[in-house]
Design a protein around this nucleic acid. Sequence first.
DNA 1: TCTGGGGTCCTAGGACCC
DNA 2: TCTGGGGTCCTAGGACCC
Length: 433
Amino acid sequence: MFYDDEPRGVFFLIDNKSFYASCEAVQRGFNPLKVPLVVLSEAENTNGGLVLATSPAAKKIFHLKANVSRKRDLPIDQRLWIVPPRMNLYIEKNIQINQIFREYAAEEDVWPYSIDESIVDMTHSWRLFGNSPREVARTIQKKIREELGLYTTVGIGDNPVQAKLALDIYAKHTRDFIGEIHYETVSQKIWPISDLTEIWGIGERTARKFNKMGIHTMADLAHYNPYQIKARLGVIGLQLYAVAWGVDRSQLKNKPIVKSQSIGNSQVLPKDYRSQAAIETVIKEIGEQVAARLRHQGKQTQCLALSVGFSYAAIEDTGCSGFSHGLSISATNQDREITEQLHFLFRKYWEGQSVRHVSVYATKLVADNYRELSLFEDGEQQVKHQELNQVIDEIRDRFGFTKLVYARSLTADGTAMKRAGLVGGHNGGNSYG
DNA sequence: TCTGGGGTCCTAGGACCC
DNA sequence: TCTGGGGTCCTAGGACCC
């Protein structure tokens, strides 16, 4: 194996052990590893409750598997803490953790990846803090434990993908919560893996495809003909082939921070919706949520997409899971225009099926630094709409979303009231009185 | 998995243009 | 018209991640 030409650095991938559950444990003065605790979201459409996080002790004492995800699967036991999520608390903790990382690496070398994971390029700074990358990892773990009470796991690699696999496959199961993969240990650490879904980027579908091709381990993948992989799975297949060799040529430095290219909200409804008016109410609410986020971020959208997922009964009847259609429009972030376009799309494609899932996405975003007035409507009227929306946003920002909802949202069909205060679909944890 | 939510990226096929 | 070929853009759908 010749890895001489491959980029080689020192990368940490750091994540938090049972992050939400740990934050809740710390807030209550417990050790996150030792208290049996689950974070349970009981938002309206979670069908009785969705478990967002399970502490290590809860897994151990009650033999809960990592994939226990429903309230109905939880034991009834006084010892088990069951607490509601506070998404805003977790966001705040995440920011504090990344601040600590920045004490060990330059600003541009810290890449928050999700609410509980960050990539840190330690190539240029690790020597300042210890005699080996592993020792530095231990120092960072200790610091976070001391300052925030949280336990972190660290994957170390010569490139980001090695660090990611070291984290996912090894760090979580070792005593010191540290795993390492290097070019020299790829065959030993990556090739034996036979549950391909453990590999970042391989899900159920892709694993099944590989199995059908006779690929059952990462060693099989590494020794397969890459041209055939490309033919069957495209560039994604080639990327995974590279992963099997521990190769990752992504140059984090050169990549601009990818600001999200789309803004969208979606919702699984608490029951099947049948009437046009009821479904359109939900579409309107979600559309307005998207519009508010666009305005908040100073963006306008030039393309709206509506996805409608049918109920299981309707899927069985029609053999179709739903539809998804987009519409190019002139740039806007206004409630009324967005709702109108969404309703147009809905009426065009809906044929009476009962509905369980609705999502609205805004893409082709542009900065909201000019006002494009529609040629076909009274300009003054449009400006008034914009001003009204701006006032509504300000009130929502200051006092919370529930202070202002349209009368229609108060009918039985509306879900906006119940969704207020949710962050990522779960309780934000702030109370607005 | 009888239904969590917010994202990103890739691809096949069609429309359109020269 | 029993009509070439290549490039680009767009759309709908799929797959995956946390």
